[in-house]
Simulated scan of single mutants.
Amino acid sequence: MKTLDSVALGLLIVGGLNWLLVGFFEFDLDATIFGGETFLLSKIGYIVVSLCALYSVKFFPLITFQTTSQYRKT
């Protein structure tokens, strides 16, 4: 699972950087690499990053648990 977590995090970072480029410069790196927004490979890229985002929702309880545990020790 640790490998899958790392891959999901890496793809989320790449996706976030892509949205940064879209927001600041109206430049979609994914569409540029894979041949346009409507090209199949580009759509697959968007889907994979979105699935990584959904997968990463599982980390919220871990963050909450660690934060709560730290406050209970004091």
Rank of each mutant, 00 (worst) to 15 (best):
residue 22 V to D: 02
residue 39 F to D: 04
residue 17 L to T: 05
residue 62 L to H: 05
residue 16 G to T: 03
residue 30 D to N: 15
residue 36 G to W: 10
residue 10 G to N: 05
residue 29 L to R: 11
residue 45 G to N: 04
residue 59 F to W: 15
residue 19 W to C: 05
residue 53 A to C: 14
residue 56 S to D: 00
residue 30 D to G: 14
residue 39 F to S: 13
residue 12 L to R: 01
residue 58 K to R: 10
residue 37 E to H: 09
residue 64 T to L: 06
residue 25 F to S: 11
residue 14 V to C: 12
residue 41 L to T: 11
residue 56 S to Y: 15
residue 17 L to K: 02
residue 8 A to S: 02
residue 24 F to I: 01
residue 5 D to C: 02
residue 58 K to L: 00
residue 43 K to H: 05
residue 21 L to C: 06
residue 30 D to R: 15
residue 67 T to G: 00
residue 43 K to C: 03
residue 60 F to E: 00
residue 36 G to P: 01
residue 19 W to I: 09
residue 47 I to C: 14
residue 33 I to H: 00
residue 43 K to T: 03
residue 16 G to N: 00
residue 54 L to E: 07
residue 36 G to L: 06
residue 55 Y to R: 07
residue 51 L to Y: 09
residue 48 V to D: 07
residue 51 L to F: 12
residue 7 V to L: 14
residue 4 L to K: 05
residue 32 T to K: 08
residue 22 V to M: 09
residue 47 I to K: 09
residue 38 T to N: 11
residue 10 G to D: 05
residue 33 I to L: 06
residue 7 V to E: 08
residue 32 T to M: 07
residue 18 N to E: 04
residue 46 Y to R: 04
residue 23 G to C: 00
residue 26 E to Q: 14
residue 62 L to V: 11
residue 8 A to V: 03
residue 44 I to A: 04
residue 49 V to G: 07
residue 4 L to S: 15
residue 30 D to E: 02
residue 40 L to D: 02
residue 5 D to T: 01
residue 41 L to V: 06
residue 41 L to N: 08
residue 18 N to I: 03
residue 32 T to I: 01
residue 4 L to A: 14
residue 28 D to E: 05
residue 37 E to D: 07
residue 25 F to Q: 08
residue 52 C to F: 12
residue 9 L to W: 02
residue 33 I to C: 03
residue 65 F to Q: 02
residue 27 F to W: 04
residue 29 L to D: 04
residue 15 G to S: 01
residue 50 S to T: 03
residue 15 G to Q: 03
residue 19 W to R: 12
residue 65 F to K: 01
residue 48 V to A: 12
residue 67 T to I: 15
residue 24 F to P: 06
residue 33 I to K: 01
residue 65 F to D: 12
residue 53 A to S: 12
residue 38 T to L: 14
residue 23 G to V: 08
residue 47 I to N: 14
residue 24 F to V: 05
residue 21 L to G: 00
residue 20 L to C: 10
residue 53 A to F: 15
residue 23 G to H: 14
residue 38 T to A: 10
residue 43 K to A: 03
residue 49 V to T: 12
residue 21 L to D: 07
residue 26 E to K: 13
residue 28 D to A: 05
residue 37 E to I: 10
residue 44 I to N: 06
residue 8 A to F: 09
residue 58 K to I: 14
residue 17 L to S: 01
residue 12 L to S: 00
residue 30 D to P: 11
residue 53 A to M: 14
residue 48 V to C: 10
residue 60 F to L: 15
residue 19 W to E: 13
residue 63 I to N: 08
residue 60 F to C: 04
residue 34 F to A: 07
residue 8 A to P: 03
residue 15 G to D: 02
residue 62 L to Y: 12
residue 55 Y to V: 05
residue 23 G to M: 10
residue 22 V to E: 06
residue 13 I to F: 05
residue 8 A to E: 08
residue 22 V to Y: 03
residue 61 P to W: 10
residue 58 K to E: 13
residue 35 G to F: 05
residue 33 I to S: 02
residue 6 S to F: 08
residue 32 T to P: 04
residue 21 L to H: 08
residue 27 F to Q: 04
residue 23 G to A: 11
residue 15 G to I: 04
residue 49 V to K: 11
residue 57 V to I: 09
residue 63 I to P: 06
residue 21 L to M: 13
residue 21 L to I: 04
residue 48 V to S: 08
residue 14 V to M: 06
residue 50 S to V: 02
residue 44 I to T: 13
residue 32 T to N: 07
residue 24 F to C: 04
residue 47 I to E: 08
